[in-house]
Design a protein around this nucleic acid. Structure first.
Length: 581
DNA sequence: GCCGTTTTCGGCCCGACTGTTTTCAGTCG
């Protein structure tokens, strides 16, 4: 699939055009198209072959021609043309916070600055402030920008940011001056990684609230502290912004600062078409404010159903809200069990008993203990002998936990040749079989796709675990034609996993949604290697929500008995013991 | 660049902050 390549190219072209001071609307078109292309799971070459490029929102005649050229000739004339006199290092200047295209072009033109290193040297030599419109403050800003840029500014995984911010908000709410406080931004949208953290509060004395905020434990540096906005740096160079707003526009501000930016732009366009104006202060008809105290009004006054933050991604949610076809999203409370937990029989840290206790504590009706298979030495995979000893242990623990169904499972390795790591007559003994790739990540797309397809086609396999293999902290997904996998899985009834482990979140939201469109059902699993990590389920639920999933799409939401029947029908026998919820 | 019950031209979200300006451009979210 060339989607990613083309999206990257369009983004780069936008950067170059921006540097050149081209029209902002043209630049936006490139960026918008890049995002749409990256989000779509269909192969763009397929769309091109069917002459359907123009049907894609955001792609018109011009971009369609460029895409076609790239697909057939492997290059884009326009790209080659514009990049000629703008080397990559120059474009990188735009990544320095506080330095926009105008300033970047100015320093390049007037001072011959060609890279970030050049820029720093120029500022330190006092040459920047001599330019028209530049001053000492600007110097400071640029130097700070360079520092921030070099700090790599890594995004935090949701699983790390979430508890941190929850603690912070709880702490803030203890302040008697604060009447309401919520996290906003990408965290409220439960995006898989978080950049800056935005917190919104309301109360009587903004200055006091902000002062208290800047004095909170863990604050390393105070960037700003005023009457409405405070900004601090805490550990890990994480920036946290607190905004204090009036109660009367709290809803509008919450909507505004929750984003996403793309969602807000689209919503404001929609509002404008209906004669309204939206801002962080409220919703206005002419000069008259008609709402904004509660967030619901920002949608309700426009005739839209309330759009949950997780859906605010400009992926059709406004249209759905208008048509009344928003999904009735799954919630954590709907989840009755965890399909993917490792015990100390393989590479997990917790005993089966500890896992069972944790499952009960979470109010679950079932838990599947799935350990690695024999070939996976690094995961201390179980030999066939060990598999059956483990079953004895599960039976023993099951007897002590009559209210919980403990499923006897495995995460069986899909080997390099596409066969599974246990023979069928062993696989049929499990209650739940999860199949996964743990080796040969670098193989080509055809090879990996066929390995996964052969697992999908195996009647003993119930779930495909972490279908892309990506790690958020840095491992690229392996090359797999998910479209083929989804279609096969829809036909065979094989479930796709939403792996809730904080570094995986695999499938991700975009693929989840596409799989659902293909008719696939899902299983959520935390991939916990310690009983405590079963708490990651809420991350999996967030991904499911962002992928528009409802209760019926997810097997975890069925009663334990129904779940057992479901797997029994799939060629794996029902396990032992009784349970129900 | 895209797009169209405001269609083939002329729009394209909205506001705050900053620094430098003597009325506003640039940048950000």
């Amino acid at each position: 699939m060339k989607n990613k390549e083309i999206a990257k190219l369009f983004n780069k072209m936008a950067d170059i055009l921006e540097f050149k001071g081209d029209m902002s609307f043209r630049i936006n078109s490139y960026r918008h198209a890049a995002r749409v292309i990256e989000d779509m799971s269909e192969d763009i070459a397929q769309a091109a072959a069917e002459k359907k490029l123009r049907d894609i929102e955001g792609i018109g005649e011009g971009l369609a021609k460029k895409i076609e050229e790239y697909l057939s000739a492997g290059k884009m004339t326009k790209y080659d043309e514009i990049r000629k006199d703008v080397p990559d290092e120059l474009v990188a200047l735009l990544s320095v916070p506080g330095l926009g295209p105008k300033t970047a072009a100015l320093v390049h033109r007037e001072l011959g600055v060609n890279s970030i290193d050049d820029l720093e040297k120029t500022v330190r030599e006092g040459r920047l402030k001599k330019l028209f419109g530049m001053g000492e403050k600007k110097e400071e800003n640029v130097l700070r920008g360079i520092r921030l840029y070099r700090a790599a500014h890594e995004r935090l995984p949701l699983g790390v940011a979430l508890p941190l911010v929850e603690r912070l908000v709880t702490e803030l709410k203890k302040d008697r001056n604060i009447t309401r406080a919520d996290s906003a931004g990408s965290l409220r949208r439960m995006q898989e990684t978080i950049g800056d953290i935005d917190i919104l509060a309301c109360g009587d004395d903004g200055t006091k609230i902000i002062e208290a905020f800047t004095r909170m434990p863990g604050v390393k540096e105070v960037l700003a502290s005023g009457g409405t906005k405070g900004s601090v740096i805490v550990e890990d160079d994480l920036q946290i912004d607190l905004r204090v707003v009036d109660r009367d526009c709290y809803g509008a501000a919450l909507q505004h600062f929750t984003g996403s930016k793309e969602h807000n732009v689209r919503l404001r366009e929609f509002a404008k078409g209906k004669g309204y104006k939206l801002s962080e202060y409220g919703i206005f008809k002419g000069e008259k404010k008609v709402g904004g105290r509660e967030e619901e009004e920002m949608y309700g006054k426009l005739g839209l159903a309330f759009i949950p933050p997780v859906l605010r991604q400009d992926r059709g949610e406004i249209e759905a809200a208008l048509a009344g076809t928003l999904p009735d999203l799954v919630t954590l409370a709907d989840i009755r069990g965890d399909f993917h937990v490792h015990s100390n029989w393989s590479d997990g840290a917790s005993s089966i008993e500890e896992i069972a206790a944790e499952a009960l504590r979470r109010g679950y009706a079932f838990v599947a203990v799935c350990d690695h298979s024999q070939s996976l030495r690094v995961g201390r995979g179980l030999t066939i002998d060990a598999v059956f000893k483990k079953r004895e242990e599960i039976r023993r623990v099951q007897a002590q936990y009559p209210k919980l169904k403990i499923l006897f499972g495995t995460e069986v390795d899909i080997k390099g040749d596409g066969t599974l790591d246990y023979p069928d007559d062993v696989l049929k003994e499990f209650d739940v079989v999860i199949a996964a790739i743990h080796s040969g990540f670098k193989e080509d797309e055809a090879r990996i796709t066929s390995r996964i397809l052969s697992a999908v086609e195996n009647p003993h396999v119930d779930i495909i675990a972490h279908p892309t293999g990506r790690l958020i902290s840095g491992r690229e997904p392996y090359q797999v034609d998910l479209e083929k996998v989804f279609k096969a899985a829809a036909r065979t009834g094989t479930l796709m996993e939403v792996n809730a482990y904080e570094d995986r979140l695999d499938l991700n939201d975009v693929f989840v949604r596409r799989a659902k469109e293909c008719g696939v059902k899902f299983a959520l699993g935390t991939d916990a290697h310690h009983a405590e990590q079963m708490g990651a389920m809420r991350l999996g639920v967030a991904v499911a929500q962002r992928g528009w999933l409802e209760k019926d799409d997810i097997v975890n939401c069925r009663p334990a008995r129904e779940t057992a029947d479901f797997f029994a029908q799939r060629g794996t026998p029902r396990g032992q013991g009784q349970a129900g919820k």
